[in-house]
Amino acid sequence: MTLLSATAAAPTTRSFSTVRLFLLVAAAAVVLAAPLAIYPLFLVKILCFILFASALNIVLGFAGLLSFGHAAFFGGAAYITAHAAKVWGLPFELAVLAGVGFATVLGLVFGALAIRRHGIYFAMVTLALAQMVYFLAVQLPFTGGEDGIQSVPHGTLLGIVDLGKSTSMYYVVLGFTAFGLFVIWRAIRSPFGHILAAIRENEQRARSLGLNVERYKLIAFTLSAALSGLAGSLKAIAFQLASLADVTWHMSGEVILMTLLGGMGTLIGPAVGATFVVSMEHYLSTSGLPITFIIGTVFVICVMLFRRGIYGEIRARLLATRQPSDLGD
């Protein structure tokens, strides 16, 4: 709905109805003009969580793996990027790259350790590993303990664009998020995506067709970790802060919530869920109402009434009225 627009419209021209094209153009216009009306840093926060939730969706929605440890990649990358930018004085691009690199390696290691377990055991292993990262974040001196790493420099993009301006920051993060979503979109529409769907549906069957199930799951998990790391790195730079909040299990839970609320297993669902949750938190934070209670209530309602999530439900209704060949994303 939102960020896909800029990228999705360009490469393929097949079977895009005019209505769809119009929606994409309109969405692109809204996304590009948004900082004129809304506080850009708030939008940046939404973008970071859109990317994070979409990254989690690769494993949760497309590979069928419930990871309860994705905060380790998000928060871990945030720490590395913040440290690289502030202490090592690396430029923005390299600091982000360092964070993403760290998350990728961490994802590969966590994945290799967890991927043979299934269901709740997989969730528990990922949670345990993420708690180890949390422990390290509390103990290691470079993370700044309770204070986190503060006043991380914004830097510039390629030495040209000053990221201290929040509007510039918005467009840069928008670009990265669009890139991340484009990667996911391509991945799940490729043969690799079909293999993930087959594994999710019946692992045993996929294996007896000669597919190395563990390897594909590990690739998906690592890709997911890398993009989660990208989200964390961008957040650290944009908000000039890497803190313990980013590596807690609470963060892992929140991103699962976003994905489920929006609709897992769809491209747009996690973006809808992330936008919804971050906006709720933002607008309710000044109201004095208990935010977690309200979001919890919304979640319960969602699970009971529309189990596919907000976007998932809308999509299912739309598809029911259309041709089966339109099962696009």
Partner: peptide, 14 residues
């Protein structure tokens, strides 16, 4: 596989 169409099912196995 129910989530894949005929062609995708056909092309799935390596």
């Amino acid at each position: 596989f129910a989530t894949l169409n005929v062609l995708e099912n056909l092309m799935l196995p390596p």
